[in-house]
Amino acid sequence: MTLPTGGKVNFLAAASGKCPVCGQGRLFKSYLKAADSCAACGQDFKAADTGDGPVVFVILIAGFIACGGLLTTFFLYPDWSPMIHLMIWPAVAVIVSLLLMQPLKALMIASQLRNKVRD
């Protein structure tokens, strides 16, 4: 995973699912599967291995949001049934996790490109 000569990494393009080098091609061929290369500029993504890095951040962020929301509503609305909390906050945690996983994985791939990580 080497950058073309004079290439810069665009983290905003990566977070939106575009190639972090040219900002045109797609970074992912499916939800979490990185493309082999960029269709526009030919940047190779085969060596991109994020491992469990993005998952750790997703767990921390989604857990903070869900637990914070649970505690807030628990104290603001003490008359709510525990079943209401069990319907709302696990669903919020899952939705937030699904929304964050792809952008955080893309940012990890862009970071690997910028720092010239090799196998």
Score class of each variant (00 low, 15 high):
Met83Pro: 03
Lys116Arg: 13
Leu104Pro: 02
Ala48Trp: 09
Leu98His: 05
Gly7Val: 02
Thr2Glu: 09
Phe57Met: 15
Lys29Cys: 05
Gly51Cys: 07
Gly69Gln: 14
Ala106Leu: 03
Ile84Cys: 06
Leu32Gln: 11
Gly68Met: 10
Pro78Ala: 08
Cys67Ser: 12
Gly42Ala: 13
Val21Pro: 01
Met1Arg: 04
Phe28Met: 05
Gly17Asn: 04
Leu70Thr: 12
Asp52Pro: 11
Val9Trp: 11
Ile88Tyr: 08
Ser97Asp: 02
Ser97Ile: 02
Leu27Pro: 00
Gly23His: 07
Ala13Ser: 08
Phe11Gln: 03
Val55Ala: 15
Thr73His: 05
Met108Ile: 02
Ala39Asp: 11
Lys116Leu: 09
Ile61Tyr: 00
Thr72Asp: 06
Ser81His: 13
Thr72Tyr: 14
Met83Glu: 12
Gly17Val: 04
Asn115Tyr: 13
Asp36Phe: 14
Tyr31Val: 07
Leu70Asn: 12
Ala35Gly: 03
Lys33Trp: 04
Ile59Asp: 00
Ser97Arg: 05
Val94Ala: 12
Phe57Tyr: 14
Gln43Tyr: 14
Ala66Phe: 01
Leu12Cys: 04
Pro103Gln: 01
Thr2Ala: 05
Leu76Trp: 15
Val9Lys: 02
Ala110Asn: 07
Gly7Pro: 03
Met87Asn: 13
Leu27Ser: 00
Asp44Lys: 11
Val21Met: 05
Cys41Ser: 12
Leu104Trp: 01
Ile61His: 04
His85Pro: 06
Val117Phe: 12
Pro78Tyr: 00
Gly17Cys: 05
Asp44Ile: 07
Gly7His: 00
Asp119Arg: 00
Cys19His: 09
Phe74Lys: 10
Leu76Ser: 13
Ala40Val: 07
Met87Gly: 15
Leu12Val: 08
Gly63Thr: 11
Val96Ile: 08
Tyr31Gln: 07
Leu100Arg: 00
Leu100Met: 05
Ala39Glu: 13
Phe57Leu: 15
Phe45Arg: 12
Arg118Gln: 14
Pro90Trp: 09
Leu60Cys: 15
Ala14Asp: 04
Ile95Asp: 06
Ser81Gln: 13
Lys8Ser: 03
Met108Cys: 04
Gly51Tyr: 12
Thr72Gly: 09
Thr5Leu: 09
Val58Ser: 08
Leu71Glu: 14
Pro20Tyr: 09
Thr50Cys: 06
Ser111Leu: 10
Arg118Gly: 10
Val117Glu: 10
Gln24Trp: 00
Lys105Ser: 02
Gly6Val: 11
Gly63Ile: 10
Tyr31Pro: 01
Gly68Trp: 11
Ala13Pro: 07
